[in-house]
Design a binder for these strands. Structure first.
Lengths: 229, 229
DNA sequence: ATTATTGATTAGCCTAATCTAATTCTAATG
DNA sequence: CATTAGAATTAGATTAGGCTAATCAATAAT
């Protein structure tokens, strides 16, 4: 059984690999992502390689092996089930679940995970809109939409997913209804990378700088004439 | 924040200290209890001392400091809340909860523990009959009874507590109703350290060797003439 | 084609937690 | 009170995971 540290690396590699459509993940990306130094990441990549969790080429990053992906997906499943359970059963807010889930994901048994899933009726997405891998570690296919920064003025967009890592950001977004399943109207897209949206029932609109808008994904439901696509 | 390893030592010291009415705990006891070698325990005792978790005298064991006890009690609380939750909400059996709780106790937040307690209605004992420390870490006073090995033939005893560490034993005992709150009749006490009890509704009686009977605690409810004490 | 810049790796060290082997202490016994 | 068995400690090594400083590779720019 891999250590929780190794698990963290594998999950991080998985997240980055997924974000960049399967591209090789470089040591520096992981160093950044996990907040370790570059040499630490390099040395861990060798360890992962020699344990069969990744295929690593010097100076050219790594990709997960099947086994590495299995480990990562189990963590992702645990994490997202925990997040769902915490919000559904214990009244955690969207912005509170990440840290708790990030610790516990390493330590719950498959049985515990199954209990959570069962209690929740085998959910396929977590409260941030991310897909929950099944117990056999298949990731449910699901439209992932586009980054919010990719839409045009006048479009109506339904939010599909919000990144779960930045607590303060989540607090900001969820207090303004920028959460999965709400419809947003794109009010304006400024050339300097600022997008303004209006949630339903809110008179105030919400302005998001580009790098924030990239953490929210949605899909267009109607064009500017009000007709469904 | 202490490492989970340090937490394990502190909890172990707490358990032994409690079992032996506050006596100093020696390195060898801990080595046994945690399955490490004697030098490892010795070296950890120094570490614990220099971190202010215990008062340690060479060749004379250690006692928990206030801070050490606080850490231990928090773990005990988490452990017992988890055990209670797992049996009450997820249908774990008495014999299944220990390992899961032993891992998770280190990683749940106080908030998570509070949610468990809340959901369970602030229970004061776990399913093995052990007291659950409150959120301010007071241990509810509760009659701890006597070891089963201390009773005489003919007595009727209500089980108060069963040790939670040996999975197989627990499975054996709980399949035969030797669990908290059942009344047992002491059928015989053999001189070579074997006690035989009969649970209600069981025609078969259960024989327990001395070292097993020491892990079950109970209190006498009536003497051999059938009168309550 | 050579050089500069950036990114990655190697070398060497540190701490926590463990071990085995050797030594030293304590307590009990004659 | 001297001896000795058993416990406890010290000495020294190992492994995992991290760091800094120094070196090396790959790419981009002259």
């Amino acid at each position: 059984m891999p250590s929780t540290v190794i698990e963290d690396y594998l999950k991080a590699i998985y997240e980055l690999q997924t974000e960049y459509n399967g591209a090789r993940v470089r040591t520096s990306q992981i160093a950044d992502y996990l907040g370790v130094t570059a040499p630490t990441a390099t040395s861990m990549f060798s360890t992962l390689e020699s344990n069969g969790f990744v295929e690593y080429e010097k100076y050219n990053g790594a990709v997960l092996s099947e086994e590495g992906e299995r480990v990562a997906l189990r963590l992702v499943r645990n994490h997202r089930l925990l997040e769902t359970y915490l919000t559904a059963e214990f009244g955690y807010r969207l912005s509170d679940v990440h840290d708790e889930a990030d610790r516990l994901e390493h330590h719950i048994s498959d049985r515990f995970a199954a209990c959570l899933a069962d209690e929740l009726g085998d959910p396929t997405t977590d409260p941030h809109g991310a897909p929950i891998p099944t117990s056999s570690l298949d990731v449910p296919e699901r439209p992932r939409g586009e980054k919010l920064s990719a839409f045009d003025e006048g479009e109506t967009v339904v939010v599909l997913e919000v990144d779960d890592r930045d607590e303060e950001l989540l607090e900001y977004l969820s207090s303004r209804q920028v959460v999965p399943e709400t419809e947003l109207t794109i009010e304006s897209v400024a050339p300097f990378g600022m997008i303004t949206v209006r949630p339903p029932g809110h008179d105030d609109s919400v302005s998001l700088p580009d790098d924030v808008a990239r953490l929210v994904r949605g899909t267009s439901v109607m064009d500017s004439d009000g007709t469904h696509i």
